[in-house]
């Protein structure tokens, strides 16, 4: 009886896994195959004679290449560092200091963040960055992206920090360590997986950001890939499907590689599961 049930459950498991692979994988097939084709199509076609011509053509576009090799990296790494550091500090403070109304604060922040990433705030944000003299500079984009991503990052980090026992920190405190030393030497090593999750998450967000760089950057040689991809459009506003798909694939690879690396080294998961 038990055995029979186990077999059923493993058959069900495989069926489910196959369905999941189909559901999640099929929309991506086109992206993986089309760049190697020589004929543009919206259909998934396995290239009969795979070609690298499309990639060669993409590399002719100086700005698009620069977007990937330089601008995207600056924006994404800058945002990632800022968000991870500041969120760790803030989450630690929210968890370890008795700050009045800290739960409400975390939630209010989440709410505000949905406004800042929304479209209505683009105008004031533009004016603020303008006032700081940071229009057309990557730093302006990075600052705004940090501001937009911080609340969620704090929210996620807080859970990781809450889940680690405070006893090590208490003993460090008794032996006279300063609060910053405790944070750096005792608490941070324990929340490293959490920092990695936040790092990947904020890197991914900055890597794909479209609206904010679009509004704040001006020079073609500073634009990230999300906007540079539209330079593969024709005059009529039609995408050149082969070039767009080739560029899209190149644009996607770094986040995939980054994720796989982090997942392999640290494991990418929420530890306790966010629950507050």
């Amino acid at each position: 009886m038990k055995r029979y049930r186990k077999r059923i459950s493993s058959v069900l498991y495989y069926v489910f896994a196959v369905l999941a692979i189909a559901f999640f994988g099929l929309p991506l097939l086109w992206l993986i195959l089309t760049p190697f084709n020589s004929r543009a199509s919206l259909a998934v076609e396995i290239p009969t004679a795979p070609t690298l011509d499309n990639f060669r053509a993409v590399f002719q576009n100086k700005f698009a290449v620069q977007a990937l090799t330089q601008n995207n990296l600056i924006i994404a790494i800058g945002t990632m560092l800022g968000v991870t550091l500041i969120a760790s500090l803030a989450a630690y403070a929210l968890s370890r200091a008795r700050i009045p109304g800290r739960n409400a604060m975390a939630y209010t922040l989440m709410l505000f963040s949905s406004v800042v990433t929304g479209t209505a705030a683009m105008v004031p944000i533009f004016l603020i960055i303008m006032g700081m003299g940071l229009i057309d500079q990557h730093l302006g984009v990075i600052l705004v992206l940090i501001g937009g991503n911080l609340p969620t990052a704090i929210f996620m980090m807080r859970d990781f920090v809450d889940d680690i026992p405070a006893s090590y920190e208490e003993s460090a405190m008794i032996s006279g360590a300063s609060p910053f030393q405790i944070f750096k030497d005792v608490a941070l090593p324990q929340v490293r997986p959490g920092m990695m999750v936040v790092a990947v998450w904020s890197f991914v967000n900055a890597w794909g950001a479209f609206l904010i760089p679009f509004i704040l950057l001006r020079s073609s040689d500073k634009l990230p890939a999300s906007t540079a991809i539209y330079s593969f459009y024709t005059e009529a506003g039609t995408p050149n499907i082969l070039l767009v798909s080739a560029y899209a694939l190149l644009y996607t690879l770094p986040v995939v590689v980054f994720y796989l690396l982090v997942n392999w080294k640290y494991g990418f998961r929420f530890f306790g599961g966010i629950k507050r």
């Binding site: 002719q60 576009n61 700005f63 073609s220 539209y230 330079s231 593969f232 459009y233 024709t234 005059e235 506003g237 050149n240």
Partner: peptide, 8 residues
């Protein structure tokens, strides 16, 4: 306008 793209 973009060299090799829109309004080349």
């Amino acid at each position: 306008c973009v060299v090799g793209g829109t309004n080349a």
